[in-house]
Design a protein around this nucleic acid. Structure first.
Lengths: 146, 146
DNA sequence: GCAAAGTGATTGAGCGTTCAAGTACACTCG
DNA sequence: CGAGTGTACTTGAACGCTCAATCACTTTGC
């Protein structure tokens, strides 16, 4: 017995798809246009920049950026080609690999950050009231942790 | 002067990314696994199935599924290869093209729908209270139409 | 009418993601 | 110890998406 969506739920679902796709698309376009990187790569650089020694195990980085290991591996390969990330073998576990943000990578991130933050505001925060932002936060936590 | 995100906003933003990526990923994986189509293709079939004569102009279809014309064109090419969609020239505007859902395509959609709706419920609606769902609807409208 | 500008749709190249498979190392336990 | 299982990461192929270019047709304005 399928629990079909009633008209209200349909409406929420379609608005959700439209809104999230719009946000995602604006961010990707802005970063690609102004900094030449996809949003997923920006997030990788950002997470590394916050880590101790700007370094993280690949698997830890993958979970922090909500990525599969395969995706992250391909992404780091690209970022390494550009000289923004360096991978070194892990000394305590020889299977592992440590990704480090280079100075060049940090500089790219710093240059990209202001435009990106503006895009995030324009796409998501500016259209919402403070109350809505608070509620959206609760809703996203519930969905994320379900 | 960059308006940086304060810690609360950061938290909302990261939860938003995690939640929306999770939903998107679950839907895509479920449809790909159980029906062999990406979510974007499912939406194309669904929109055509609701249209008069199961037919829409390509550009109308593109706006209904929040897609670029290029993306839709590629998608329809794939769907046509599988025999689920048929494209015919538009008689009133010879530049245009009409996409029609075939019976085979309709059958595929009908077979895929129950599993997809269940996935939507599990990923988005079940974790939320009715009140939260209502608020999410309002929030998404505001973001979509901003 | 007719050139110029605009619109509808397609195409191909480049790129990121996915999935399945593979490699290398670490752990477990008889 | 050493075989078996599990974990960390990488790789390659297939595929969808983006962007810019292109084609065909339509509309605009002189």
């Amino acid at each position: 017995m399928t629990r079909w969506l009633d008209p209200d739920e349909q409406q929420v679902w379609r608005s959700f798809l439209a809104a999230t796709q719009r946000v995602q698309e604006e961010l990707d376009r802005q970063l690609q246009r102004d900094s030449g990187i996809p949003h997923a790569y920006y997030v990788v650089l950002a997470m590394l920049s916050e880590a101790d020694g700007r370094t993280l195990r690949m698997s830890d980085l993958a979970s922090k950026v909500n990525s599969s290991q395969s995706r992250l591996s391909h992404a780091c390969a690209r970022l390494e080609e550009r000289g923004w990330v360096r991978r070194t073998p892990c000394s305590t576990d020889k299977r592992g690999s440590l990704a480090t943000l280079t100075n060049e990578g940090f500089a790219v991130l710093e240059a990209a950050a202001p435009g990106h933050v503006e895009a995030v505001r324009r796409a998501l925060f500016d259209p919402l009231t403070p109350e809505q932002i608070r509620r959206l936060g609760e809703i996203c936590l519930a969905v994320r942790d379900s």
